Amino acid sequence: MSDEVEPGFVRVRLDLSYDGSGFSGWAKQASGRRTVQGDIEDALRTVTRSGETTYELTVAGRTDAGVHARGQVAHVDLPEALWAEHREKLLKRLAGRLSRDVRVWRAAEAPAGFNARFAAVWRRYVYRVGDQPGGVDPLLRNHVLWHDWELDVAAMDAAAKSLVGEHDFAAYAKKREGATTIREILDFGVRRREDGIVEIEVRADAFCHNQVRSMVGALLFVGDGHRDVEWPRRVLDAHVRNSAVHVVRPVGLTLEEVGYPADDQLAARQGETRRVRVRGQA
């Protein structure tokens, strides 16, 4: 499947972040609900004076409603003349048009072979949880989940480590027609910050729908003593969706970073990803 940029167009990489609290996820919806993609495409159309023409974004990872992003990456193909005209002031104009809960920090011409979704080699998410008896700091309420049981971080970390590697994550994923549930987790760990917030960090080549929040739900059961350390791995090895695994709320989840190979390896990575997972969820 070719991803050649059309003649007369330039591919632009956008690095962005957003507070997902007010969005119904990344992807545009027929219902007209507010989405990150919709807001940015509307702003881009306005600041470039493109009339009725919408230049669609391709994103590294489609976040769900309420999920945040600090290091999201997208690309858009723009006419060369339009890019040349607006590139110098594009960020400032977008900042003036977009709501304060979404920001584009960088817009630059992408190297050959770049595709925000298919050229990515990994995505890194962090889920933040507070287990203090009094609840979560009100200033962090939209970014930290309150769990009203004290958490054993060491047990959670051991359980997380048991899921590292390439596996079929059907037990932790919402199955989608035609999409594989095989993923490779590169790193998975749990730590407690000095301020008491528990951070569950996972890095993988890609994630299935609901996979991260399902795995976090399993780890919380381990952390509060409702399940043993080996339980999340037993769930994984069963290869079927387990009703005992809760999909935790999106409030604590943030896409922190997306990784890409060196420029001369972008095209090869894109081709590899398309062969393995053309219709998979990033």
Rank of each mutant, 00 (worst) to 15 (best):
V5G: 08
V10T: 15
R11Y: 08
L16W: 00
G20P: 01
G22P: 03
E41W: 06
T46Y: 06
V47L: 03
G51R: 05
E52R: 12
Y55Q: 07
V59M: 04
G61H: 08
T63P: 06
G66D: 12
R70N: 07
G71S: 06
V73F: 08
P79D: 11
P79V: 07
E80H: 13
E80A: 15
L82Q: 12
A84E: 15
H86W: 15
H86G: 07
R87H: 15
R93M: 12
L94W: 04
L98F: 02
R100C: 03
W105D: 13
A108H: 12
F114H: 03
F114S: 02
A120D: 08
A120P: 02
Y125N: 02
Y125M: 03
Y125S: 02
V126K: 00
V126N: 00
G134E: 14
V136I: 15
V136W: 05
V144L: 08
D152Y: 03
V153Q: 03
V153S: 05
M156G: 01
L163N: 06
L163F: 05
H167D: 06
F169V: 08
A173M: 00
K174G: 09
E177P: 01
G178W: 05
R183E: 05
V190R: 01
R193N: 12
R193L: 14
I197D: 11
V198W: 02
R203P: 05
R203N: 07
A204W: 07
A206E: 02
N210G: 01
Q211D: 03
R213H: 03
M215G: 00
M215S: 00
L219D: 01
V222T: 11
D224H: 14
D224T: 01
D228P: 03
R234Q: 15
R234D: 14
N242T: 05
A244F: 05
H246R: 14
R249W: 04
P250M: 11
G252L: 09
G252M: 08
G252H: 08
L253I: 06
E256R: 14
E256H: 05
E257H: 14
D263Q: 12
Q265M: 10
A268T: 14
E272L: 14
R277M: 09
R279A: 14
A282G: 10
A282E: 11
